[in-house]
């Protein structure tokens, strides 16, 4: 589904990614670990071009989205992203946060369809705006019910706890029906008490067959849920394996050292 070929990224003269190759298939849960400053977050942020790659290509559903000529917004609809600091829209209520993009994207598609209909003979049926909103709201409420926060639908994000914010952020990206969701250290900014509820939701997503790429420091999650674990250091993938082999029989010297420090 995502085919990363020789991905490079530099910030000015500082080369952070020095050629990363990885293939992410449908249903994979790829967990990325590595010391801080290793480039793991940059790698994740390049996957949806949040950072524009300086070299290499990212083939997503057959299109090289690293090419600056590609309309990245169309492809980002299919790639969800969850941030360390949630990044919920502060000026919108919880339900508006979830509905905003589905409604706006459906509306812009509708506009295009209306224009196309105007010029062509065989008219395609077009959804009404009211119907678009109704569908989006229904879907949003269903998703909120899934995480048990129906009663927070009209609350503003500033009134939620960290764990609640992150779970809303996850279903916000889910509302776009993405092919893959990228998680950028989703539990690092949470109180220890709230880490569990977020990991639980992520685990549930993984079990439902969602393709996920997760940058995290939660080794437990990597072992239990990951289908593959990737160790990034100094801008390249140093080791990639299934969780059992990865944690019990690491090959790379740097990884051995890293694991001995984090698995105390």
């Amino acid at each position: 589904m995502i085919d990363v070929i020789n991905l490079r990224k530099s910030f000015d003269k500082n080369e952070v990614l020095k050629g990363v190759d990885i293939k992410i298939n449908k249903g994979d849960v790829v967990v990325v670990i590595g010391p801080s400053g290793s480039g793991k977050s940059t790698f994740l942020r390049c996957l949806n071009c949040m950072e524009d790659p300086t070299g290499g290509s990212i083939i997503f559903n057959g299109v090289d989205i690293a090419d600056p000529k590609v309309d990245i917004n169309i492809h980002r609809r299919r790639i969800g992203m969850v941030f360390q600091h949630f990044n919920l829209f502060n000026n919108k209520t919880v339900i508006q946060n979830i509905m905003l993009s589905p409604v706006l994207c459906a509306k812009s598609d509708r506009r295009k369809a209306v224009i196309k209909n105007f010029f062509s003979k065989n008219k395609q049926p077009v959804q009404s705006v009211a119907q678009i909103k109704k569908d989006a709201e229904e879907n949003a409420r269903k998703l909120l019910a899934r995480i048990g926060l129906e009663d927070k639908a009209d609350a503003y994000p500033s009134t939620l706890s960290g764990g609640q914010k992150q779970r809303v952020a996850i279903i916000r990206s889910l509302a776009m029906n993405p092919d893959v969701i990228l998680f950028d250290e989703p539990t690092s900014a949470l109180d220890p008490e709230m880490v569990g509820e977020v990991l639980e939701l992520m685990k549930e997503l993984a079990q439902s067959g969602m393709t996920m790429v997760v940058v995290t420091h939660e080794m437990g999650f990597a072992k239990e849920v990951g289908s593959r674990v990737v160790f990034i250091d100094e801008g390249i993938i140093k080791e990639e394996n299934n969780p059992e082999e990865f944690f019990t029989n690491p090959q790379n010297a740097r990884l051995k050292e890293f694991l001995s420090k984090v698995l105390m």
């Binding site: 949040m50 169309i74 941030f83 990044n87 829209f89 990206s173």
Partner: peptide
């Protein structure tokens, strides 16, 4: 306004101008 707000908007597929206007 925190840059995370822009990132949040862009990550769900909104264009730069829509993100600006709505968020």
């Amino acid at each position: 306004v925190d840059y995370g707000q822009t990132e949040g908007g862009r990550s769900v597929g909104l264009s730069f101008s829509t993100t600006m206007m709505k968020i």
